[in-house]
Amino acid sequence: MKKMKTGFGKLDFLFTVIVGAAVLVTIIPFLNVIAMSLSSPEAITRGSVWLWPAGLNAEAYKAVFTDLSMIWALVYTIILTIFYTVLAMILTVLLAYPLTKNRLRGRKFFTFIFVFTMYFSGGVIPEYILFKNLKIINTMTVLVIPGLLSVYNMIILKSFLMGLPASIEESAYLDGASDFCILFKIILPLSKPILATLCLFYAVFRWNTFQDVLYFVTNSKLYTLQLKLNMLINITQSSELTQFEGANPTRIAAENIKSASIIFATVPIVLVYPWLQKYFVTGMTLGAVKE
């Protein structure tokens, strides 16, 4: 094996610059929000906060961290997300794997009925009636079960699985392994990067989505963090609301508290990917098969 070139060449420099520039550009919104969260409300109203705080103070964070309902929402959302992600992944794997098998009769039919639901859905009203009849309105269940399967994610997994060399499974099959066995002992360990990716997708989806919470949950103890955040911010977006409600506009949160809440609600989920990166290990398929 030839020795790999070490040292920092011209190309390395180029790639570093490209990535560095991209990072600098994309980091701006985040810096802006952080700056606002550490500024005084007046400075923000004046529009003088851009990438650096003005009137530096940590009042906003103090307010957020002492707000028990926010802390509770954080804990609750974390638990919900973990629960959801685990169940969702199980469901997705159980669905994707059989659909990769050409020999399965009805494969195309099953795939189609799932893809169909990506496009057609009944809407909130029938869903509400269904959930009401199942007695899951206003429970944690309604945030876990209904949205459990993302066909989009399933298709990604399916394509990935179909890209694995068939010879791996074949040898195991010929040695007498059952489908379940192959799936759990061979396929899944080889699929760590894609599984990690889909875990991330599901977790982020559950974390960020609040439309369903809005419609199906009225108990504020079951509000997810993003919903609380959304209510905090959106109340002020609509100046028509203010006008309807007369010249006694409802009290709104200070700008810096809004920004601190955004950071509070975002940092946990942002940290998931770095944590998952250990699964993005190369060469898993290497050497598994010796023809």
């Binding site: 990535v19 980091i27 985040f30 960020n208 942002v270 990917y273």
Partner: peptide, 11 residues
Amino acid sequence: SQTLLYLPYFM
């Protein structure tokens, strides 16, 4: 970089 690059997605 990877972590920083996807930050705006969360805003």
